[in-house]
Design a protein around this nucleic acid. Structure first.
Length: 889
RNA sequence: GGGUUGGUGGUCUAGUCUGGUUAUGACACCUCCUUGACAUGGAGGAGGCCGGCAGUUCAAAUCUGCCCCAACCCA
């Protein structure tokens, strides 16, 4: 304890603000003393708990600006809600269940996963990942977010495996899953089927090859035709040739038979409108399978399968002499042989888009295999409705979700042929292939090492079983985070699904980057909706990307990545957070150092203003006591503060952090520091001002707390907190969010008074006088009642006179302002004539009747306002403001 | 190729849904000022035909259509 005190002096306002020591000190104490721990209470009203379903990051990767941005936004919401409404769950998950972690484990331990039983290997993965998790935790804690570190989960841990397998069994029992032999997208490098969302397009260099096919028989007008292909290695897999029905040049071929060069097998020539006539010769070969079109043709025309490429992209025996070659090798060899035999007619280089697996960049194949699917196409309407029920911040992001669902064409493929991952809890009868599901109470299981729950097949009575070797795709787990966080489980006694923390579900907020709405968010909605019948989130906050200073996407290849570590080494976290709040939620925004400097300046301003408040109105223990009578200038500040609190509360509730940030900064810096504090300097012994200063200062700290948690905690502890009490009771972050106190003030007089002060500042500036120069005598005509002393004090005016009547001026009409919003609808196209009349001076102002006659029309009082040009003929200088006239003698 | 979103002083941005004639603020720039916290502060100034073209309207940054540019998602 003492050692700690030596290192960390008591918080105080002495000297300048030193974020480096202050920030890490509070980060440590918040975590050590569990300030943000969520205590579950199943009886708690779900409406008073604010729960965030945070998507778990891959922890073996490095922390990037996206993590920093996303979790800081979540923290704004978490900190505000904790103050405003009490209990908040801000959990954290470690995603260590992916291919990345497996590869990492193999590399670190120099082992091959094939040499281990699946369970043993996963145990090793967990050990290796532990170090990376610790490092990631450390980095996350350096961001100063209010994550509850006692509520975390890892996607690789047995508890989560159990939930994933329960999810599989529940969907199976609900009839939402099926196993089917069908063409699927296949990665030959990873040797697994993958889903549509894991495939992306990539520009690759390749060759177009013009290859001659012989026509068999005499039905056509010729004895050969040309097809163009980028994949000659698929020739052995050719099962048909297609021609567009509208393609007149090639109609003679339809119905004929073609002979495939080199391999010699014969295939039919068929008409189909899916042929792209613009490309090549207009004659296309259909293989098993070159692309999705081939799959459609295979299904539509009931074509045979010719599998020439196996699961590792090696040529099969169907490829004859080329058997055993890789697809790349076979491509070159076949082209050479075609050339030798005279079938290669042309060859040229091209660049085209190729479908590749996003994890390894390997071009994908399409293979027929038996896979598990989640049926989604038949529930598109329900998922769309689920999306409609959520509040989207920003609203426009819903359209992305909508279009994604409307465009769905495949059910969700969930099995992966990988060696590790979460296993399917399924066995098959060796005799009749009947599916045997694990018992829910036994989960998690691994069919490769565990026995099925039955002795004999319930279908045929056979007693031998084969284990399902496949594992779940990673989204099968990642899509369950709301259920993991709420402690979803199967209660065997009650024969029902239960939740440990039912008060959390549905979650209040799901944060998500805008690039992954279509899979991560969508999959989570599908899973949770099917399990619980409820939409898992009340609201979703979709955030944008952090771009580099030139507004370009950060990427390794461009070398323009900015690492959070580097930023935090140079700038306080609070300053980084202030920059983070500068973009509207959903917008991409650039990383700019000048914005971080702006944050630093704000911290300094807050610190220095706090020091001044502390000298003007020394703090006393407890809440400040309101004097019987508040003077107008002080009541005015508190009334303005009430307005600010009102607006900020609404903005935080709507995740409008950028607006809240600007509103608060402007009010704090311009109104409080530049205007009120200057006035308060001349009124320090006044109990009314002391009360207003204290109240405003305390409120500012509370309002800033969600944005700037470190500096506000430091100041709060230095000035207001009882240092001996537990941090849980004294931390600013456990206080209540401010509420408007109902102060009423003459806002017009306050506004006018500030105008007068502004005018006098301008006067001094123009006359190159110091701002504290004395002004002998000033007269004001305008509503400033109650604010005379304030003006006099702050502007150093010796004699201030309030004029009853307008000073001696000669006036002439300078301009006439029209109220177009009423004038327009009333006079329509006459407005142009009215404008022209005023412009040319052909009008008459009738003071008695209070009307303006112009262009043959009579406008009454409310429709126009006459702006007068005043010329002062008396002593001294006259300055005009919006609602006052000031004369400096 | 299709869809979505955006384009506002040098830079970043508010305002656009709900049209009203004078477009917000910050940074940078110029001038001035040491006010009992902060010169890392304060006061003032210059700088924009709101991506382009047409249209609707008395009135368009705002609504409609087309075009150009950028990002993202999907082929």
């Amino acid at each position: 304890m003492d050692a700690q005190t030596d290192e960390d002096p008591e918080p105080s306002l002495e000297g300048g603000y030193d974020p480096e020591t202050v920030e890490s000190r509070w980060q440590d104490r918040w975590v050590d003393e569990e300030i943000y721990a969520y205590e579950s209470d199943p009886k708690r009203d779900p409406n008073t708990v604010y729960a965030i379903d945070t998507p778990p990051p891959t922890v073996s990767g490095s922390l990037h600006m996206g993590h920093l941005y996303g979790s800081t936004l979540q923290d704004f919401a978490a900190r505000f809600q904790r103050m405003a409404d009490g209990d908040v769950l801000f959990p954290f998950g470690y995603d260590d269940n992916g291919i990345a972690s497996e590869r990492l484990t193999e590399k670190e331990l120099d082992i091959r996963h094939q040499d281990y039983e699946r369970r043993e290997f996963q145990e090793l993965c967990r050990e290796v990942c532990t170090e990376y998790e610790a490092e990631f935790t450390e980095k996350m804690q350096n961001l100063g977010t209010s994550i509850d570190w006692s509520n975390t989960y890892k996607t690789i841990e047995p508890r989560v495996q159990r939930i994933s397998q329960l999810s599989f069994l529940d969907l199976y029992e609900k009839g939402r899953e099926y196993r089917k032999k069908a063409p699927a997208i296949w990665c030959p490098e990873c040797e697994t089927a993958i889903s549509q969302v894991e495939m992306e397009d990539d520009e690759r260099h390749s060759h177009f090859n013009d290859i001659a096919f012989d026509v068999v028989g005499d039905g056509a007008d010729r004895d050969e035709f040309i097809i163009s292909t980028t994949r000659p290695e698929l020739i052995p897999a050719c099962v048909a040739v297609f021609v567009h029905p509208d393609d007149e040049d090639n109609q003679d071929l339809v119905g004929e038979t073609a002979r495939v060069p080199i391999f010699g097998h014969e295939v039919p020539i068929i008409a189909d409108d899916r042929v792209d006539m613009e490309k090549g010769s207009g004659v296309v070969m259909c293989c098993t399978f070159g692309d999705q079109n081939d799959i459609e043709w295979y299904q539509a025309h009931d074509l045979p399968l010719r599998v020439a490429i196996d699961e590792s992209a090696t040529m099969t025996d169907l490829a004859g002499d080329y058997e055993g070659l890789s697809t790349e090798e076979a491509r070159e060899a076949i082209v050479e042989d075609l050339d030798d035999d005279g079938y290669l007619r042309d060859r040229w280089e091209i660049t085209h888009a190729v479908g590749v697996h996003e994890r390894c960049d390997t071009p994908v194949e399409f293979r027929v295999s038996k896979q598990w699917y989640v049926e989604i196409l038949d529930h598109k309407e329900e998922y769309l409705e689920a999306g409609r029920e959520m509040d989207w911040y920003p609203e426009k992001m819903f359209t992305r979700y909508k279009h994604w669902i409307e465009g769905l064409e495949w059910d969700w493929l969930i099995s992966r042929q990988r060696d590790s991952g979460i296993p399917f809890p399924v066995w098959y009868c060796a005799e009749c292939d009947h599916e045997i599901m694990a018992a829910k109470e036994d989960l998690p299981v691994d069919p490769l090492s565990d026995e099925p729950p039955v002795d004999a097949c319930p279908e045929c009575g056979h007693d031998e079983f084969s284990a399902e070797e496949d594992v779940f795709d990673t989204w099968a787990t990642s899509s369950l985070t709301p259920l993991i966080n709420a402690g979803w489980d199967w209660d065997a006694d009650a024969e029902a699904f239960t939740m440990d923390k039912p008060e959390l579900y549905p979650f209040d907020l799901r944060p998500q980057g805008h690039d992954i709405i279509s899979f991560w968010l969508f999959h989570t909605v599908v899973k949770c909706y099917e399990h619980t019948g409820e939409v898992p989130f009340d609201a979703t906050m979709i955030h944008g990307h952090v771009l580099d200073e030139n507004r370009e996407k950060m990427s390794k290849s461009k070398g323009n990545i900015v690492a959070p570590d580097e930023v935090l080494a140079e700038y306080p976290v609070d300053a980084v957070r202030f920059w983070t709040a500068s973009a509207a939620v959903g917008d991409d925004f650039p990383y700019q150092e000048k914005d971080l400097r702006a944050g630093e300046k704000l911290l300094r301003k807050l610190w220095n203003a706090s020091k001044l408040v502390d000298t003007l109105a020394p703090a006393e223990p407890g809440e400040p006591e309101e004097p019987a009578e508040l003077e107008p200038i002080d009541r005015w500040l508190l009334a303005e503060l009430d307005d600010a609190v009102d607006e900020l509360t609404a903005q935080f509730e709507d995740y409008e952090f950028a607006k809240a940030r600007d509103r608060l900064r402007t009010f704090f810096w311009n109104t409080f520091c530049d205007d009120y504090l200057e006035i308060a300097k001349g009124r320090e012994d006044n109990p009314s001002t002391q009360y207003a200063l204290r109240t405003a200062h305390r409120t500012f700290l509370e309002l800033w707390a969600p944005f700037l948690p470190h500096v506000t905690e430091e100041i709060w502890q230095a000035v207001y907190a009882d240092g001996d009490a537990a941090l849980d009771d004294t931390s600013i972050h456990t206080r209540d969010w401010p509420s408007p106190q109902g102060y009423e003030a003459d806002l017009e007089a306050g506004e006018t008074a500030l105008e007068v002060i502004g005018a006098l500042r301008r006067y001094k500036s123009e006359h190159q006088l110091p701002l504290n120069a004395d002004l002998e005598s000033v007269s004001v005509y305008g509503p400033i009642e109650g604010f005379e002393d304030a003006i006099q004090n702050v502007m150093h005016v010796q004699d201030l006179a309030v004029l009853e009547t307008e000073p001696e001026v000669t006036t002439e009409v300078a301009s006439i302002d029209l109220d177009y919003s009423t004038l327009g609808p009333k006079f329509g196209s006459k407005v142009g004539d009215i404008d022209a009349g005023i412009e040319s001076g052909e009008y008459e102002i009738d003071r008695d009747a209070d009307v303006l006659r112009v262009a043959g029309e009579e406008l009454d009082d409310e429709l126009f306002e006459v702006e007068l040009e005043r010329t002062y003929s008396g002593e001294g200088d006259m300055i005009e403001t919006e609602s006052a006239v000031v004369i400096v003698d």
